[in-house]
Design a binder for these strands. Structure first.
Lengths: 226, 226
DNA sequence: GATTGTGAAAGCGTTCACAGCC
DNA sequence: GGCTGTGAACGCTTTCACAATC
């Protein structure tokens, strides 16, 4: 049996990258072994959750001792498919697309930018670090040449569906979508959405609530104090 | 009773901004009324979920008819605290910070950038659109002057905690964190984290799974086909 | 003695299904 | 007749608690 044997719950999958990062930082700091409680503290979660999460990958811990950091990192990287790079292609060379292309963190974490394309002829040819913006017509060629399977949609909202269609036609099977629209793609394609305005709205909702609560019971603090 | 009366589940809160956007787009397109099923289709979710989500805000629908789009937008905006702008301050004027500051979408959606600060003297004074990068020492002054309650951490990971500490000291009560670290803040401060590398790792996990599954059962397709 | 791995319990979130209302 | 609002059922996630193991 291999990595493909088990089915890992979505909620756990979403936490694996965080564990991996914490483990890597620990290893760099010279930590050889970690207990579930120590890892839980680093991740800001409950120790039982850490143990259950790790148990989906396999039984890599030692009772009474904990987990070998280096070995766990190896298993995490294998499970997450990080034994090789995953080149990405970015569609849209506006503010965000440029920032993403220029952001070294992607390459560093195993996601080199294979290319960035735009429909706007004025943008084609400009350089972002070492990467040159190419016309969108070259998308399929880039995908084929660099074996890209992840595409990033960084276009304005009205252009996002077309960008996604082009990515799918080019043979991509995962999309990270920064545009504020629901993308329609074949069921074989995974999509994750990051909407910055949505994040701010969630924050301001809770701000608003606190403000409303403070107004509604202005003397509650005093009551509790006495 | 007002908006502050009910307690809305987190999962619902996270969907409200999406509904609001879809409703606004519908209104712009001339749609006056929507049923829960129509809104569900737009949002890519189940109609029962839409009805339950909306029911937490109040009983704004009409049985046999649906929801009045304009009235629902009004209620959403009130509930989300969008009856006024929420100025934000950005800490870190690197790639991402600059992109965020230059991204018009924030202002447009009610989150004008009140300021962007950086510790690097070389960056101070540079202009991003109409906004000038200021030294981090001016953070508290900006927060006070513009009544900012939301801060954005767009620094490299090692500087993120210090940035958060400064934001908290300056009086901020919500933080949107783009750095790949867990921020420690007082319990009165809300934090939301956006980690782009994590999103890519989640996508590549599922990519990896598909690839492994395809290898494990290379003839499964044929078997199903026959 | 310490810590894992995991059944069982508790808590949330989603979906169903239908009474209630227009 | 059509659609909402919601109790009840279901399923997923988290947490507890402890036997198994080093």
């Amino acid at each position: 049996m291999g990595a493909s044997g088990r089915r890992i719950p979505e909620a756990t999958v979403a936490r694996l990258p965080d564990y991996l990062r914490l483990l890597t930082e620990s290893l760099d700091a010279g930590v050889v072994n970690l207990s579930s409680e120590e890892l839980a503290d680093l991740a800001g979660v409950n120790a039982a959750k850490v143990r259950k999460d790790l148990s989906y990958l396999g039984t890599y811990g030692v009772r009474g001792v904990g987990y070998d950091v280096e070995y766990l990192i190896y298993q995490f990287r294998r499970e997450l498919g990080l034994d090789h790079d995953w080149p990405v292609v970015i569609v849209g060379a506006g503010n965000l697309g440029q920032a993403l292309a220029g952001y070294g963190g992607f390459r560093e974490r195993g996601y080199p930018v294979a290319g960035i394309v735009d429909v706007d002829p004025a943008k084609v040819g400009t350089k972002i670090g070492e990467i040159e913006v190419r016309p969108v017509t070259e998308l399929a060629a880039i995908v084929r040449r660099c074996h890209v399977s992840i595409g990033v949609v960084a276009t304005p909202a009205p252009a996002a569906q077309l960008a996604a269609d082009r990515l799918v036609a080019a043979g991509i099977s995962s999309i990270l979508n920064f545009a504020a629209v629901l993308l329609t793609v074949p069921s074989t394609v995974s999509v994750r959405k990051v909407d910055l305005a949505v994040e701010l709205q969630i924050l301001s909702y809770y701000e608003q609530r606190r403000a409303a609560a403070a107004l509604a019971t202005p003397r509650a603090q005093l009551a509790h104090g006495g």
